[in-house]
Design a protein around this nucleic acid. Structure first.
Length: 815
DNA sequence: GAGCATCGGGG
DNA sequence: GTGTACGATGCTC
């Protein structure tokens, strides 16, 4: 009678049908077909923890709230024994009829004197469902029930029983990458209301296509012509529905491609009902825009890479070109995008190369997705979040998702999310972070780097740091954490805390996996190990994150304090042994041998390790032939991280030399990059100095091209709304007078000239001026010199030396 | 040193 | 929609 299906869930949503919440799970079956499984058997609920001896239950049962002509009331109450922040509690599980009744009822009871607290009313229903049913996205789930006839793009199976089954997961989801090119005449200005989409490209498994709506002669078999932009949008829908991807991915598609398509579709009144349930493409505009399709996981590769992988990359720029170059060793096709709109208007034959360019961007995005997929899948499996959400979350949210998932198993009740006043209070609290050993500025040869493996997680584990173990009665007056300012913080030594249990579980799981990887490495196992590490490392930040449910500033402070204690142990020890400590930050120490042998360093490392508690360990990170350290003090405490290292394989690892931003002229950016390269790779500071002097003299003689001195700044507000009129605002006003439409979001390009007093008077439109008009002194003093000043300071050269025309010989200062 | 403005990704 | 969310840095006072 009852059928069975086994499938891997990708997306989850719910709808209210016949006054009942119905959960929809979209996924792929083990025999590779798309499916939708519906489940009507899950009731919304939350917890209350009553104070002792009163009639809470009766009072709860009497609640009736009329909200939009629907009565919200309690359906049932169950007595449950739970744990809450380190102690046992008798709680009530309050079951209601509809998910939306939960906040309504909690609003009524939130200030009841007879309650200690109301909990878990603020966990989203979707999340609640997954946790309670023990379902992890992408992992095998077995459902029994029957197929039903619902309006849907995929077969619908109604489940009367559903459960996680086995350890298999969807390891090779079907991925489709896409990318659009749009009309844009005014440089980088992006105006979806005005400018059409010119082409859209797709890249998938044995699938490539570019759709465009202006004809030209081509041999490219993947180019498809349609008649209009509206038809292009229709094709976009069709291709998605025909290809049937599990994941559709783009680069910054959350914030650009999908919203753009949405806007254009609205213009033509095209229904974007691409969802597997025929629901429309959703674009939610908040602080950051996000875009979703029901049943198809939309994954913005940019967001995922920026948030999750970004910090570990060598490149500081997160654009497709830099990221693809580093992660998959391929770059974008070089074209001048200003030419695209021109080709569109005047020279259709030139569009062919832009089709190639367009396809290549999809190709790169596909490759990035392919490369990152093991990491994405493993993270999903650990934290239990669906892919589109995962890609948008910060680390603290990943941690919280993981804790919530585990709370069920540990029978813990979750604390509530902080409300406004509590949040404000938390945001005022600060705490001292890691210790930074201010670098002695200089160019060093032979730098060795050591760091603590998972410093903060191992501290949290071995010192039992947790909001529930903090300040317990049973350990009053015993060992306190090395926090300063007279604070006395201690953590229970008798009962293991909830978070330390979780974190030690993560660390030991990772150690086991690393053993397996050593024997027979697989990309998936490698990725699992990485995900476990990342998650464990994020616990410390989570404890001090104002939005955290298990927030505990005391725990965060104590963790950091122990961290400083242990890193000092290495720094002091190394100096005592005769090594030269060049720099240290939080969990890592950079040193040079100081005349001693490499063997001695490793002996020293061993000694440190023999004295560490629990799971703590100091590891050897690597050797760098040369490194440049720059001092950049900020306030009284610590120094800013600012250094550039040359690795043995010839790559530059640059940290803290920011300013590679749009509002710097390209001449300043180029000079900085070249200077670091010459100093570290060629070991030739003198050549670097000569190089800068040459650029400066070229600037003086106005030999540097206009393109290289253009500064880009974006308008953020309406023109009238500015109090401070910067150069870009002045230029924008000028443009407006000329009849050029500028507003929030427009990028203003300008060049600083000699005419005028204030900077804003000196600014001109690039089109208005000639090569010799730009203000050489401005570009020397405010752009090029600041970009390299600090670097040369390290080498014993002041700003004045850069500006002097005669040669000096203060260089060759090695340490 | 605080508070405000801007960038970033995308064409 | 089961109170949902940018984070870092530079400039100006």
């Amino acid at each position: 009678m009852a059928d069975k299906v086994t499938f891997y869930p990708l997306d989850v949503t719910y709808k209210i049908e016949k006054n009942k919440a119905v959960v929809y799970l979209f996924g792929r079956t083990t025999d590779n077909k798309q499916i939708c499984v519906v489940d009507e058997n899950f009731e919304p609920y939350f917890y209350v923890i009553p104070k002792k001896g009163n009639g809470v239950e009766e009072k709860l049962k009497k609640i009736k709230v009329d909200k939009d002509n629907e009565i919200a009331e309690v359906a049932r109450i169950e007595k449950v024994q739970k744990r809450f922040l380190g102690r046992d509690v008798d709680a009530l599980k309050v079951i209601v009829k509809l998910p939306r009744d939960v906040p309504v009822i909690r609003e009524v009871i939130k200030d009841w004197e007879i309650l200690e607290s109301v909990n878990e009313y603020d966990i989203r229903y979707k999340k609640r469902y997954l946790i309670d049913k023990g379902i992890t996205p992408l992992m095998g789930v077995e459902a029994s029930g029957e197929f039903v006839k619902y309006r849907s793009r995929v077969p619908v199976f109604k489940a009367d029983r559903i459960e996680q089954k086995g350890e298999t997961s969807l390891d090779e989801p079907r991925v489709l990458a896409f990318d659009i090119e749009t009309y844009a005449l005014n440089g980088k200005n992006i105006e979806p209301e005005k400018n059409p989409i010119l082409m859209v490209s797709f890249y998938g498994e044995r699938f490539k296509k570019v759709v465009t709506w202006k004809r030209f002669k081509t041999e490219l078999e993947y180019v498809e012509f349609v008649k209009s932009e509206a038809e292009l949008i229709e094709r976009f829908k069709e291709i998605i529905n025909e290809y049937k991807p599990d994941i559709i991915t783009g680069y910054f598609s959350d914030g650009f491609d999908i919203p753009y398509i949405r806007t254009r579709a609205d213009k033509y009144k095209i229904k974007m009902d691409v969802g597997l349930d025929f629901s429309e493409l959703r674009v939610r505009k908040g602080r950051t825009t996000s875009s979703d399709i029901t049943g198809v996981n939309h994954l913005d590769m940019f967001k995922f890479i920026k948030k999750i992988v970004g910090p570990t990359l060598d490149t500081s720029q997160m654009n497709l070109n830099s990221v693809a170059a580093e992660l998959i060793g391929e770059k974008k096709i070089e074209v001048d995008l200003d030419d695209l709109s021109e080709a569109w208007d005047k020279n259709h034959q030139a569009l062919e190369k832009f089709c190639k360019y367009n396809l290549h961007d999809s190709f790169l995005t596909y490759k990035l997705a392919e490369k990152m997929m093991p990491n994405i899948i493993e993270m999903v499996k650990i934290v239990g979040m669906i892919i589109p959400e995962l890609a948008r979350m910060g680390y603290s949210q990943l941690v919280e998702s993981y804790i919530l998932k585990q709370a069920m198993r540990f029978n813990e009740i979750a604390p509530e999310l902080p409300h406004h006043s509590e949040l404000r209070k938390r945001q005022m609290h600060s705490y001292k972070g890691g210790f930074v050993y201010e670098p002695r500025p200089g160019l060093y040869k032979g730098v060795m780097v050591f760091d603590y493996r998972s410093l903060y997680p191992t501290i949290i584990g071995s010192h039992n740091i947790d909001p529930g173990t903090f300040g317990c009665e049973c350990c009053r007056g015993k060992k306190t954490a090395p926090v300063d300012e007279g604070r006395k913080y201690w953590f229970c030594t008798k009962k293991k805390g909830f978070l330390p249990s979780l974190i030690e579980d993560l660390i030991t799981r990772r150690m086991r996996i690393k053993e397996i990887v050593k024997k027979k490495g697989s990309a998936l196992m490698e990725a699992r190990s990485q995900s476990l590490k990342l998650l464990a490392n994020a616990f410390y930040g989570y404890l001090g994150f104002p939005m955290a449910r298990w927030y505990s500033i005391e725990s965060a402070r104590s963790t950091a304090a122990y961290g400083r204690f242990y890193i000092h142990k290495v720094i002091d020890g190394a100096e005592k042994e005769g090594f030269k400590v060049v720099y240290s930050d939080t969990d890592s120490v950079f040193l040079t041998l100081g005349g001693k042998d490499k063997k001695d360093v490793f002996k020293f490392q061993e000694k440190i390790n023999s004295e560490l508690p629990g799971l703590m360990e100091l590891e050897y990170e690597g050797f760098y032939p040369s490194g440049l350290f720059v001092s950049a003090k900020i306030g009284k405490f610590g120094a800013k991280k600012k250094y550039a290292l040359l690795s043995e394989d010839g790559n530059l690892k640059i940290r803290g030399f920011e300013m590679v931003r749009r509002n710097w002229s390209s001449i300043a950016k180029d000079v900085q990059e070249k200077v670091l390269g010459i100093i570290l790779k060629e070991n030739n500071p003198e050549k670097a100095l000569k190089f800068v002097k040459k650029i400066i003299s070229d600037l003086r003689e106005n030999k540097i091209g206009l393109k290289e001195v253009v500064i880009h700044t974006r308008l953020q507000k309406e023109l009238g709304a500015y109090d401070a009129v910067g150069p870009h605002v002045a230029i924008a006003e000028k443009m407006k007078k000329k009849g050029i439409d500028v507003g929030p979001g427009s990028t203003i390009q300008f060049i600083i000239t000699k005419e005028g007093k204030r900077i804003r008077d000196k600014a001109r439109l690039p089109s208005e001026i000639k090569q010799k008009d730009y203000d050489s002194e401005y570009y020397i003093n405010n752009q090029v010199v600041p970009a390299v000043e600090k670097i040369f300071e390290v080498l014993g050269h002041s700003k004045e030396d850069l500006l002097e025309s005669k040669q000096q010989n203060k260089l060759n200062k090695f340490f």
